[in-house]
Structures are given as C-alpha cells and as structure tokens.
C-alpha cells in the first residue's frame, strides 16, 4: 500500500490548478499504461494531449471520469476526486463520493454515446433533471440555449439515429455542457467523423475556447486544430509526458527526438 500522508487533503493557496495529477499510475492488470504522471492544468487552460496509440493519452481522460487509479491522487479544483478524507487521511473514494466529485467534469466521446431512445433535447435534459435535480422547465431552457450554441436547435426533437455524426457530436457537447462543468474532456471527438463535418465540431470547440472560461483537456489526432486552439500541448509516449509546451514551440521546434519522429510521421501521413 502506498503511503498517502505525502498527499495533501486538499490543495490550497492562491494559484490552485483546476486539475492536478500527482504521481498518478494507472495499470490494467500487469500492463502499466501511465506511470508517475504529474500534470497541472490551470483554470481556463486548454491543454491538448497528443501521441501515438498506446501512449496512454486517452487514459489521462478516462482516469478523470471513468476509471480508478493504482497510485497517486487526482485533484479537481483543489479537492481530491480519486480519494476521500477519512480519519484525517486519504482513502480510495467509494462510488458515491466518486460520482459527486466527478460532477464538475464533463466528457465527450469519440463515438458520441448519445442515448438513442431520447431526442436531442431529452439527451441534454437528462443530467440536469436526474442528477442536478433541476425542474424540467429550467432544464429545457438551459438545454435549448446550449443546443442553440452548438447550432442544433432546429433538430432538438430528433432522435440520434436521424442525425449525422457531426450533428450527434454537437448534441453530445451540449449534453455535457448542460451539467455546467468546470472541466471539459474531449476524447478524440473528431476521429469517428467524416472529413467534411469535422469543421462543424471543431468550430463549436473553438467557440467554447473563445467565449467561455472552461478548463479543457483534449485528446486529438488533428495536429492543426491542436496547434490553433491550445494553450499547451503535451506529447505522451510510453505512459509518460515526453515533452510539453506552447503549441508553436512543440510543433515547430520540438526538442525531443521522439516528438520529432512522431510529428514527422503524422505530417507525412497527411
């Protein structure tokens, strides 16, 4: 067992990061996918995660939302989400605490994962009504505003099966935003889309970056997009951050050899 006393019960101070990974290790059985990860993300920062498949980049997002970790602590807004306080120390969080702690986080998936038996509007209202306990009227208003924001208001009564991939992904973004998250996670949200509709999704994300003070963590294969909108880019390799920095620096003057290899491989594939 790990000695938990080295991790603070919560992060305090003037400049507490919105998301903070402290010495985090994640393994599936005997396969370690992320090792001793330390990563801080400031409030309002847009961080892109790039890297070859199997580098652990998607796992970074999944640990915040879907999975338990083997070592270390993740803090969101200064509070631990993977652990809870008990008798003055940190113990692994139980399901109930975990659910509550993850409420300030929203996530969008590669395959949208909209609820197929609900309309676009019902998809957006589900969280606010069932989890936040909002009235249906208030939830409907909020959801309609968000569907307007992503340009899907005229399709609000359609089921996902009647929508294109790009449209479904935009509804999925609205659904996540309806929970008023402080942190948004985008997991390869354009990877399953036809090339001609990628723009409509990236435009929505650009709009969020420009107009909202959301903290965002995005795994992507679209280097151009990552370069355009990120404040910082992290290149993952072999379960570790190999290199990170502002997009101009990382894309135009990568320092590490592996980063250079990866970027040139991506470029020649384009």
């Amino acid at each position: 067992m790990e000695d938990m006393s080295r991790y603070p019960l919560q992060l305090e101070g003037a400049d507490v990061p919105m998301v903070s990974f402290k010495n985090v290790t994640k393994a599936y059985g005997s396969l370690t996918v992320l090792e001793n990860l330390d990563l801080d993300i400031r409030e309002g920062e847009m961080v892109s995660v790039i890297g070859p498949s199997g580098s652990g980049k998607t796992t970074v997002l999944r640990m915040l939302m879907l999975e338990r970790i083997q070592q270390g602590v993740i803090y969101v807004n200064g509070k631990p989400i993977t652990h809870m306080e008990k008798n003055g120390g940190l113990v692994p969080a139980d399901d109930k605490y975990l659910r509550k702690a993850r409420e300030p986080i929203g996530m969008c998936f590669q395959h949208f994962n909209l609820f197929p038996h609900m309309t676009a509007l019902q998809n957006c209202m589900e969280g606010p009504v069932q989890v936040l306990g909002m009235s249906k009227r208030a939830a409907r208003e909020r959801s309609e505003d968000l569907l307007e924001l992503v340009g899907m208001i005229d399709k609000k009564d359609q089921h996902p099966s009647r929508l294109s991939g790009g449209q479904q992904q935009r509804v999925a973004i609205a659904r996540a935003l309806a929970m008023r998250p402080k942190v948004m996670l985008f997991d390869e949200v354009t990877s399953a889309l036809d090339p001609e509709v990628i723009g409509e999704v990236t435009n929505v994300i650009k709009k969020l970056v420009a107009e909202h003070n959301l903290t965002m963590l995005m795994v992507t294969h679209q280097m151009g997009f990552a370069k355009d909108i990120s404040d910082r880019v992290c290149f993952f390799f072999g379960g570790k951050i190999e290199e990170q920095g502002p997009p101009e620096q990382l894309f135009d003057h990568p320092q590490k050899e592996r980063t250079q290899q990866f970027l040139s491989a991506v470029k020649s594939a384009d």
Partner: peptide
Amino acid sequence: GQWEACSALSLSTRKTYWRI
C-alpha cells in the same frame, strides 16, 4: 459507451439501469 455516458453525467446506478 452508454455506460460511460451515464458515468460522465454522474447518473446513479439505479437511474442508469432504469432510464438508459
């Protein structure tokens, strides 16, 4: 993916089953 979407919305296990 449906389970993951429910997790991402913090839906309780009971609501995840009954509603989704």
